[in-house]
Design a protein around this nucleic acid. Structure first.
Length: 713
DNA sequence: TACTTTGTCCTTTTT
DNA sequence: GGACAAAGTA
């Protein structure tokens, strides 16, 4: 077992063998980031700098955590279980299970996913008779998660108006409900854990003494709370090794804060910044295109990828008359690639939004080209599986109201809306769980759950699952449904998943709940399961650009490069939204090893309407010398005359829209008081001209152009 | 109470 | 075009 340090380039070696101090590794796409991280861990242990138990490695996805664990195990002759390698949420969960009393949670607390969280919020709003027009459930969920991710509890919410006051009150009510039901959402896992460490000095010292080396993957994706969590955990005596790429920060919409990289450098007085710029993945032309594109972004830490491989072939660009035409062309190209010996699984088809896959799938399907679509429904998120899990949750803890409501009348057993409302009223008045409040009502269901609990008492986990599924009546129900066969299969698969879980998870990890059912439910919530049929078969790989991050393909198609789609129209009026779209395009381009196709279509069906799109600005930001047009460049001749009568507020038209006092929609501006902003809307002319500007945290403002002294930025 | 029809809204996603 | 929720019908 060797670390093979001799195969590392000088920068990689410098990172791997960095001294005991904080370090920031700017790791460009394809620069061997994972290798550096895993080798660093192995090197730390082998050189005797730290015991395996002194290492904490954090990732965002279970997949990344698994890969890290596997690769480290291959380099070290130690039981990998001693290493704390996991996702932010997984590690927080571990700590909370170990110290659940200190944070005021039951030992069997349940983790709810976003779906359940939304359901809980809807239920809350209904119960409180809140006008859902004024406070939409989804908005409230974003608000709550957003606040939690900033480390803000309800009483600390900055109240600026009636609206925020309302949101803050509902946030408080939501927290009470969760506490009463013993459930914890994703953001709560982190916040609770953060509060645990910040309040309990002894515990904090214990952990920061223990974890001398903290390694963080995808640092550009951390949110404020995760940053503060790391800071707390590091204390004064530990060293943080942060690996990230600011150019690949594409998750701002869910709270990621690229600024954490610059903050880290400053707050931790980082002296060691290593840039990994040598790319081992792509040919020169592809890298040049990526570099040129991303250089249009302003707020960068700065980095330029290079390769010792040749220039390779030019990027191939295609303009379709329509989305169907684009799909037809893609099929032909793929068929040609296959004839030339390319394996389908080495070809990635990328798009900005999921809705785009349909047309492509249709074309592929009718030409019998096997494909696999990533993303979408995961195993533990399927309705039938969630139903079965709800029964299991009630077995584990009958007071789980979310689970109760999900299955009290599913399959239908004559317990209607009115009965449920009565139970909910009783529950509210007496602060009881629905299960307890259902005394004398919903008798059939109550008895079912009670019998079930008695029956599975003491059985091994797989049998608990099997019996629960059998008694739930779900299978009989799906037998009557037309497309129920697959659902029944999934229910059977759930039993298999439980069997596999028991066999694999064997040695309980530190902090793993002793009760196997709770452990299994936690596993189901934390790991949605990338489980899909048809694995292993050679198939074309289709996915959104977001889900392509971290992957690579010999050949990549980036489709739908059109204004309004990519960059997405909604990004234009978000502060720094366009830069994030450009980073997204950068991620897409850098997935390709040898060949890259870029395509756009003149017309596209979207939301049931034909849209007339102009080519993406990103196509113009790539040097023409790197590209070979398969169709005449930006053909002036349009195959169809736009029929604007059916196009409401076509985005491209808006973009080209008129000047208002020297400004236009989508333009970045600077205001002396509110700082940077982006113009969202405009009205009036001349001295009356007004523009609406999105100032991010400062809010949305209407300003008179003649008064506001806006500067183009 | 349970199933069917109509109306509204549309990114990106992991935990 | 499709998911989801509210309103309508047996």
């Amino acid at each position: 077992m060797s670390l093979h340090l001799e195969y590392l380039n000088p920068e990689q070696l410098a990172a791997v063998t960095a001294p005991d101090e904080h370090a920031l590794i700017l790791a460009g796409a394809g620069s061997g980031k994972t290798r550096v991280l895993t080798t660093r861990i192995a090197w730390l242990v082998k050189s005797g700098r730290v015991a395996p138990s002194g290492i904490l490695a954090v990732t965002f996805t279970n997949k990344a955590a698994r890969e890290m664990l596997t690769r480290v195990s291959a380099m070290l002759p130690v039981n990998p279980r001693g290493l704390w390698i996991g996702t932010f949420h997984g590690l927080a969960n571990r700590m909370l299970r170990m110290h659940h009393r200190e944070v005021g949670l039951p030992a069997t607390f349940t983790i709810v996913d976003s779906q359940d969280q939304l359901a809980a919020i809807k239920r809350l709003l209904k119960g409180m008779n809140v006008d859902e027009e004024r406070f939409p459930a989804r908005e409230l969920m974003y608000f709550i998660s957003g606040q939690k991710e900033e480390g803000v509890r309800p009483r600390e919410v900055r109240i600026t108006d009636e609206m925020t006051k309302g949101y803050a009150d509902l946030y408080a009510a939501y927290e009470e409900q969760c506490q009463r039901e013993g459930v914890v959402d994703f953001a709560e896992l982190l916040l609770r854990c953060f509060e645990l460490l910040s309040r309990n000095e002894i515990l904090r010292d214990h952990y920061s003494q223990r974890f001398r080396h903290i390694l963080v993957d995808e640092f550009q994706d951390t949110n404020r709370l995760q940053y503060r969590w790391l800071k707390l955990l590091a204390g004064r005596s530990s060293f943080i090794f942060a690996v990230g790429d600011d150019d690949q920060s594409i998750y701002r919409f869910r709270g990621a804060n690229v600024g954490n990289m610059a903050d880290f450098e400053r707050d931790f007085n980082v002296r060691k910044v290593v840039r990994l710029e040598q790319n081992y993945r792509s040919h020169g032309n592809i890298l040049d295109a990526a570099n040129a594109l991303i250089s249009n972004n302003r707020n960068r830490l700065g980095k330029n990828l290079w390769t010792s491989a040749g220039q390779g072939e030019p990027l191939r660009v295609f303009e379709g008359e329509s989305d169907n035409d684009e799909a037809r062309w893609l099929v032909e190209e793929v068929q040609a690639l296959v004839r030339d010996g390319t394996r389908l699984s080495h070809v990635g088809v990328l798009y900005r939004s999921n809705a785009q896959s349909r047309v492509l799938e249709h074309a592929l399907f009718s030409h019998a080209i096997p494909y696999r679509v990533y993303g979408g429904q995961r195993f533990f998120e399927r309705a039938e599986v969630k139903h079965a899990l709800a029964y299991l949750r009630l077995v584990a803890s009958p007071d789980d109201d979310n689970a109760f409501l999900r299955v009290v009348n599913f399959p239908t057993r004559g317990i209607g809306a009115r009965t449920i409302e009565q139970v909910q009223d009783t529950a509210r008045q007496n602060s009881l769980s629905l299960f307890k409040a259902a005394e004398g009502k919903a008798v059939v269901f109550k008895k079912l759950i009670e019998d079930l609990r008695a029956e599975v008492q003491g059985l091994p986990l797989p049998e608990v699952v099997e019996v629960t599924v059998a008694r739930s009546g779900l299978i009989e129900h799906y037998k009557t449904e037309r497309e129920g066969a697959e659902r029944i299969q999934n229910l059977e698969e759930l039993v298999n998943a439980a069997t596999a879980f028991v066999q694999e998870e064997r040695v309980p990890e530190e902090g793993e709940p002793a009760d196997p059912l709770t452990a299994f439910l936690t596993h189901a919530a934390l790991e949605a399961g990338e489980h899909q049929a048809g694995d292993g078969q050679d198939a074309l790989q289709m996915m959104t650009v977001h889900s392509a991050k971290g992957l690579e393909f010999d050949v990549v198609f980036i489709t739908g490069l059109e204004e309004g789609l990519f960059p997405h129209e909604q990004s234009i009026t978000e502060l720094d939204g366009l830069e994030e779209e450009r980073r997204l395009a950068y991620v897409a381009i850098t997935r390709a090893r040898h060949r890259l196709y870029l395509s756009h279509a003149q017309t596209r069906m979207l939301h049931g309407q034909t849209r007339y799109n102009i080519p993406s600005r990103f196509l113009e930001e790539i040097p023409q010398a790197l590209m070979k047009w398969l169709t005449p460049r930006f053909s002036k001749k349009r195959a169809f005359e736009p029929d604007f009568s059916r196009t409401k507020e076509a985005f491209p038209l808006k973009r080209q829209s008129r000047d208002i006092g020297g400004f236009r929609i989508g333009q970045n501006v600077m205001h002396s008081k509110f700082g940077p902003g982006v113009i969202v809307d405009a009205e009036g002319q001349g001295t009356d001209a007004r523009v609406q500007v999105n100032f991010g945290n400062q809010g949305l403002k209407w300003l008179a152009v003649s008064v506001a002294k806006l500067q183009a930025a």
